[in-house]
Amino acid sequence: MAECPTNMEVAKENNSILRAFADWARKNSIWLLHYCTGCGAIELPPTMTARFDMTRYGFAPMATPRQADVLLITGYLSLKTLKRVIWSYELMQAPKYVIGFGSCTMNGGHYWDSYITINRLSDYIPVDIYIAGCMPRPEAVLTGMLEIKERIKKKLPGGWLDYEKRYDWYKENQRKILSDV
């Protein structure tokens, strides 16, 4: 599991009790966008259902980006899907996080030489956590999700701040590879 490869400033130290209360709530209730972008999504149903049960940690699947906190990029990302993923990511409301499932999001995985998939996800949208594997088992998925909770607890800055800061850089990368964004 790699960290986000950019240098970001640490979040402002805001010690008010309301902010602490809000952070505790945000840590314990994380809504995933139920958007299965690639073949790695096959590991999501076992994580949600009775055997591994991620709802006991406070995760829940939600239907639309407007309601979700976390976007899961599960597996390879074709250009067609990338356009829609960027649209969905921009519809989500801050604070929002992105989890990259599987090796395809890190370096292209075993589709590294395909003409239609991307190799580095973090060029196009900021990624907070990667979960290694092809595909990662539910235990690995759960560990990755719990890592998000740790990041919130430690008040580490999320990817959305980086997206705001370097918006032009991201947009240029997106435009280079897609025809219209």
């Binding site: 809000a22 945000r26 209730s29 406070g58 801050a94």
Partner: peptide, 11 residues
């Protein structure tokens, strides 16, 4: 917790 989290997000 869900309600508190929702009230603290952007909209």
């Amino acid at each position: 917790i869900d309600v508190i989290k929702l009230l603290s997000k952007d909209s």
